[in-house]
Computed example of a mutant assay.
Amino acid sequence: MKLPSRRALALGLAALLFLAGFGWLVATQGPLARVKVTVAKAGETTLDRTLFGIGTVEARRSYAIGPTVAGRVAAVLVDHGEAVTAGQLLAEMDPVDLEARQAAGSATAARAGQLVASAQAALAEAGSRARLAQASSERYADLRRKSFVSQEAADAKVHEAAAAQAGQEAAAAALAAAKDEARRAQSDLAGLGKSRAHLRLVSPVDGIVTARLAEPGSTVVAGQSVVQVIDPATLWLRVRIDQGRSAGLAVGLPVDIALRSRPGQMLKGRVERVDLVGDAVAEERIANVSLGEAPGNQAIGELAEATLHLPPAAKALAVPAAAVKRVGTENGVWRLVEGRARFAAVSTGPASADGMVQVLNGLAAGDAVIVHSNRTLTPDLRVNVVDTLVKAAP
């Protein structure tokens, strides 16, 4: 029997080593290799619960100042960024013919006053005639009883007294009408005065001008803003929080605020209001947070990061937030069961600042959950637990 040569033995040994290496590579690094995962255990802890949201700086009190009737802008006396005081004139509308109408209204009111005086004089004259006619009628009646005058003469005096009394009543009615006309003229004049005052656009508060929306010569309609003013003392954050993590959101919660312009400076705030109407499209709830001691020259519309602190939860079952995944329509975690990945749907509560999230149901204390994996997990996939997925740099 002829023995194989050394060359054949060397080639065979090399082939065996190659096949062994290739098999090891496929089994440990290739598509047949187990998925590497990092694992954490669900455990009870005192969870410092927090809610996180992105907010914008807004003014709680904003005033859009404009005319109550259509007209042309005569002057705008302030510009964007200027500080104004309550009652300060900001802009003025062109009165057009209002001054002439006021002059006509003043003349009408004066004439109405003169008519009242004339009617008062006429009433006094009619009263005097009525009294004289009544006295004359009484004398003639006495003379008729003594047969010194005829019945016809006595009846004529009675008629004169009645006519004089009717004239007095007519004069009184004319005086009442004149007074009503005077009041109407005064009301018209006062209305013109108010219209003139409404053409002067003044600031209702001490504030800052944030917008100059019209220029002199522009025509604006009733209710259109010419100048916008905010009260800088009412700045707050309008924070949007994911509805799925908003459990526990309430008025009074303390808030840490990091403005985008001051990332290293942490401001303190407080939840002042939680809007009843949320954003159904973005699935967010809206909390309004006071800024506390806001820095000066704060820009409206600046973004900020808000961390809301809820009361700590004692003996809360918690897992790393990175372990919670969404598979299909369910939120859950991948459990490690006998070396295989098993998906379990869970309900989660608030998260803490250190990356832990409360599990309300679906897990028990001590359950091992997969935090990170180097590939997408599927049910019953065999996995290999490692300390870290990233090798430390030498």
Rank of each mutant, 00 (worst) to 15 (best):
V346W: 05
T46Q: 10
G248C: 08
T68I: 11
Q186F: 00
S150K: 04
T378Y: 09
G66Y: 08
G167C: 01
A321S: 15
L51K: 02
G55I: 05
I257D: 02
I370L: 09
A258W: 06
S246V: 07
R273D: 04
K194P: 01
G217D: 06
L47K: 03
N331H: 14
V369N: 05
R285Y: 07
V271I: 04
L363A: 08
L77H: 14
V226T: 07
E330L: 13
Q243P: 03
Q186W: 00
A178W: 11
A83Q: 14
E284M: 13
A176P: 01
A170Q: 12
I208M: 12
D380S: 14
S5L: 00
A318L: 10
G328C: 08
V227E: 06
I230V: 15
L175V: 00
L303V: 06
S5V: 00
K157I: 00
D79N: 11
D142M: 04
L13H: 03
A392P: 00
R145Q: 14
L132R: 05
A83N: 12
Y63C: 07
A176Q: 13
A107R: 09
A100Y: 04
L291E: 02
A304Q: 04
R285P: 00
N297F: 09
F52N: 07
M1S: 04
E302W: 04
L115Q: 15
F148H: 05
E330S: 13
G207H: 05
R61H: 13
A121G: 05
D48W: 01
L267M: 03
A121I: 11
G43M: 06
A393R: 08
R326Y: 08
V116N: 05
L360P: 01
D231H: 11
L25G: 02
A351S: 15
E44H: 10
V289W: 01
A104F: 08
V239W: 06
G53V: 00
Q134H: 08
I370K: 09
A247C: 02
D231Q: 11
P295T: 07
Q88K: 13
V271K: 02
R273S: 07
D387N: 12
R145D: 11
S373W: 01
H198V: 02
G252M: 06
P254A: 15
R196D: 10
V357N: 08
A119W: 10
D142H: 02
L51T: 01
V220P: 07
P216M: 14
V69S: 13
L259H: 03
T219Y: 07
A112M: 07
L77K: 15
L32A: 11
V205E: 06
A306E: 08
D180T: 12
G21W: 15
S203V: 04
P204I: 05
A107L: 13
Q114M: 09
R260Q: 12
A33E: 08
L89I: 12
V333C: 09
R245L: 15
T56L: 11
A110H: 12
R260S: 13
E125L: 14
L389N: 05
R238D: 14
E44Y: 14
L377K: 13
E305V: 10
G43Y: 13
A364I: 10
S137F: 01
T50W: 02
P320G: 13
A190Q: 07
R212W: 04
L25Y: 14
Y63K: 02
S62N: 04
P232Y: 12
Y63S: 09
